[in-house]
Amino acid sequence: MGTCGSCSSNGIPKGCKNNGACGTGSCNTKLSVFDWLSGINPPTSKIHNQYIEVRFKNDRKDFYIVNPDHPLTIGDIVAVEASGGHDIGIVSLTGELVKIQMKKKKVKLEELNKVYRKASQKDIDVWTNYRDKENNVMLEARKIARRLNLEMKICDVEYQGDGSKVTLYYTAEGRIDFRQLIKDYAVAFRTKIDMRQIGYRQESAKVGGIGSCGRELCCSTWLTDFRSVNTAAARYQQLSINPQKLAGQCGKLKCCLNFELDTYVDALVDFPSSQTILETEKGRAFCIKVDVFRHQMWFTYANNSISWYPIDVDELKKLIALNAKGIPTKPLDELKEKNNLKVDLIEENNLNRFEKKHRSTNKKRNKNTKPQQPKNPKKIESKQNSKSRRIKKD
C-alpha cells in the first residue's frame, strides 16, 4: 500500500500533512478516519496506547491489543491474530480516539485479539497474492452456485492474510442449503470456507457506484452504520411516496432520507397539525399541503377541492384561536388577496416569466435598431445587366 509521499510532512510519518492522523496511508481510501486527538498526550505515564483499530479490505474494521513497547502509527501493515492463523491489515486509528470508538461500539476487552508484529515483506507478498485471486474465486463461486440452482448471489470474497480461510459474502431472500455447496467450494478452492450473509445495503457498500445525486454512494465512502429508513422520513419532508425515486441502488429506501430528517422535524414543531380544520364563512376548510420552506400551509374547501389557498403559519395560528372562541374566519379568497400583496421580485411563481422577458427584449431591440435604407436602384440594374451578359456569352 503506497503512501502519498508528495504531501508528506518530514517524511515520517507519511500522510497529507496531518502527521499520520488522516487514517488513510494513501489518498482516496474508503472509510478513512481523521484522528482529532492525535496531538493530545494521555494523562498516564505510558506514552503509547495499548489498543488500535485495524482495517481489512477497506470496509471491515476491528480492534486489537498491541504491546506498548512496539508503537504503531496509522498506515502500518500489521499481522494480527485470527482463527487458525494470522491475518494482515492496515492500522486505521491509534491513540485516545480508539477508546472512544470502542466505548461507542460497546466492545468487550476480553474478546479482543492481539497484534503479533509488523508485517514482513514475505507476509505482504503472500497477502497480495491471495488478494489478486479474489476476483476469479468470486466468479467461480457464482458458477458453482448457479449450477446447483441456489437462489443466492455471491457479492464479495475475502481471503485471510495467510490464505488459510476464505470468506464468501452473499445475499439471498430465504434460507440456503449449504451441504453440497460447501463441499464443492472446498474441492475447488482447497481451503477453509466461511459463508456470511449480508443485506442489500452492505452489498451496495461493497460494490460501490454513483448515486442519483451524481456523487459516490455514501455507504461505500463514509457511511459505516446503516440505520433503518421508513416512509415516515419521506412524509416529514413532504416528498411523494414514489418507490422509483426514493429507492437507491440497493433497492431499499435511500439512506440520505435520514440526513435532514431532524431539521424537518424541528421546523415542523412550529406548524399546527396537518389535521387542522378551519371554520370559515363559506364552510369548512382542511389542510392539503405543508410548505416548510415558505412557512405556509395550503387549505381547500371540503365541497370545492380544486382551489388551494396558502396561509402563513403565524396568521393560521390566529385563525385557529378565533375558531377556538367559536368565531368563523373570513373566506379563504380574502386571505389569499392579502398574501398576494407581497411583491414577487424574481417572478418565481410566474410560469410565463421567460416568455415575457424575450418579448420585451425583442421590442427594445426593434426600437433601438435603425431603419434600413432602401437599396440603390442603379446598382441593382447594373447587377442584373451583368448577369444577362454572362448568360448570353455562355
Rank of each mutant, 00 (worst) to 15 (best):
C4W: 04
S8Q: 10
C16M: 03
G20A: 14
S26T: 06
N28E: 15
L31T: 07
D35L: 04
W36H: 15
P43W: 05
E53R: 08
F63N: 11
Y64K: 13
V66T: 09
N67M: 14
H70P: 10
I74L: 03
G75M: 08
I77W: 00
V78E: 09
H86D: 04
D87F: 13
I88V: 13
G89A: 11
G95L: 05
V98D: 01
V107H: 13
V107G: 11
I124N: 02
V126D: 04
D132M: 14
I154S: 00
G161S: 12
D162K: 02
S164D: 02
K165N: 02
G174D: 15
I176P: 12
I182Q: 08
A186G: 08
V187Y: 07
A188Q: 12
R190W: 00
R190L: 10
D194H: 04
G199T: 06
G211P: 08
G211Y: 13
C213Y: 03
R215G: 05
C218T: 11
S228R: 06
N230C: 03
A233F: 01
A233N: 03
Q237Y: 00
C250L: 01
C255D: 10
L257D: 05
D270P: 04
S274R: 02
T276I: 05
K282Y: 06
G283W: 07
G283D: 08
R284K: 15
D291V: 03
F293Y: 04
M297C: 06
W298A: 08
F299A: 02
A302G: 05
N303H: 11
N303Y: 06
N304E: 13
S305L: 05
Y309I: 03
E315P: 00
L316D: 02
K318D: 15
G326M: 03
P328A: 06
P328C: 06
P331A: 01
E337V: 05
L345G: 01
N349Q: 11
R353H: 15
R359P: 02
R365W: 10
N368F: 11
K370M: 03
P371K: 02
K375H: 07
K375Y: 01
P377S: 10
Q384V: 11
S388C: 08
S388Q: 15
R389G: 07
R390P: 06
R390C: 14
